[in-house]
């Protein structure tokens, strides 16, 4: 059992990282596209009202100040606020928010467990009465993230399930996988909650388990914790098959599409990329397109009078 648990854990972590990396690489390797930005563009000077550099006469002669950090912070903030949902659909937000917080915290919980385990290897005791401040901080941080994630996550899962079933707009587009996901996440959170509340109120088992993982001295954990660990691991394997990548691609989408206002300058790097793309052959078959010719060759002969 202990070996199984350890292998499953290693596997699921490696699996999700590999899958996400592959997906991200695929996304990033797509060719540069035509501009299709949408304002406000956060790195622009006049982002408050959605202004762009096109508001200036001879815009190409002015030096542009792009504030990438602002865009980044905006996106980051939205992870923790989900403001659009709050504004547009409060009833949904009340469940979606705890659900998301559940995820953010459960991930933080695992990261903390990992570093906590590292700390333990270095001899720090993690408990409420630890000699070391670090130990105390770890103790409470792990406890807090764990418990809060179990509670909010379970609440959100049930809420979203109900919402998907009864909200006319959501129901129409809901799929069996949606329902499955909510039930699945509910089980994960509730199993964590169960293990904490009934079996292991200090969550020491998780810390020991993680210490085992990094020192390769695998240990046995109780039924409750084991169930939770297995479910969570399976969830990690399941995630790449859902739309969960949106946590990451949201950044890509905003930075590479919605806010991509990079002008093409003569002799620039972008221009070289574009020239290569224009040299690809197309195979569209409508009559006005020359199938088998490149993009560049599609254009009709110039018909200047002079």
């Amino acid at each position: 059992m202990r070996i199984f648990l350890a292998i499953l854990t290693y596997f699921s972590y490696i699996f999700i990282i590999a899958m996400y990396t592959i997906k991200a690489a695929k996304y990033l390797k797509l060719p540069v596209h035509l501009r299709w930005e949408l304002y406000p563009v956060m790195h622009e000077e006049n982002y408050q009202y959605g202004g762009s550099y096109f508001e200036q006469v001879d815009w190409w002669t002015r030096i542009r100040q792009k504030r990438y950090l602002r865009g980044f912070l905006f996106l980051l903030k939205e992870y923790f606020v989900l403001g659009e949902y709050f504004q547009k659909h409060k009833a949904y937000w009340y469940f979606l928010y705890p659900w998301h917080i559940g995820f953010i915290l459960i991930i933080t919980f695992h990261i903390l467990c990992f570093f906590g385990a590292v700390a333990m290897v270095f001899g720090i005791t993690i408990s409420s009465s630890s000699q070391s401040i670090t130990g105390i901080v770890f103790y409470y941080a792990i406890l807090f993230t764990g418990v809060v994630s179990f509670v909010t996550g379970a609440f959100g899962s049930v809420g979203l399930l109900i919402k998907r079933i009864y909200d006319e707009n959501l129901k129409q587009y809901a799929t069996p996988l949606h329902y499955f996901t909510y039930i699945f996440t509910f089980l994960i959170f509730i199993s964590g909650f169960y293990a904490w509340y009934f079996i292991d109120p200090t969550l020491s088992e998780y810390r020991e388990f993680w210490k085992g993982l990094i020192t390769f001295k695998f240990i046995d954990v109780g039924c409750g914790a084991a169930t939770h660990i297995i479910l969570f691991n399976l969830f990690l394997v399941y995630l790449p098959y859902t739309r969960s990548m949106h946590y990451i691609t949201r950044f890509f989408g905003f930075c590479l599409i919605r806010w991509d206002d990079e002008p093409n300058m003569r002799g620039g790097k972008l221009e070289r990329k574009l020239q290569a793309l224009l040299n690809q052959k197309v195979s569209w078959s409508a009559a006005h397109i020359k199938s088998g010719k490149t993009w560049g060759e599609q254009v009709e002969e110039p018909k200047m009078r002079s």
């Binding site: 299709w36 949902y85 547009k88 659909h89 949904y92 979606l96 739309r243 990548m245 989408g253 599409i257």
Partner: peptide, 17 residues
């Protein structure tokens, strides 16, 4: 338009907002 298209095809969570 490939990148924007694939993004839009793949990452909608059907929240309908």
């Amino acid at each position: 338009f490939l990148q924007p298209l694939l993004h839009s095809l793949e990452y909608c969570v059907k929240c309908q907002i």
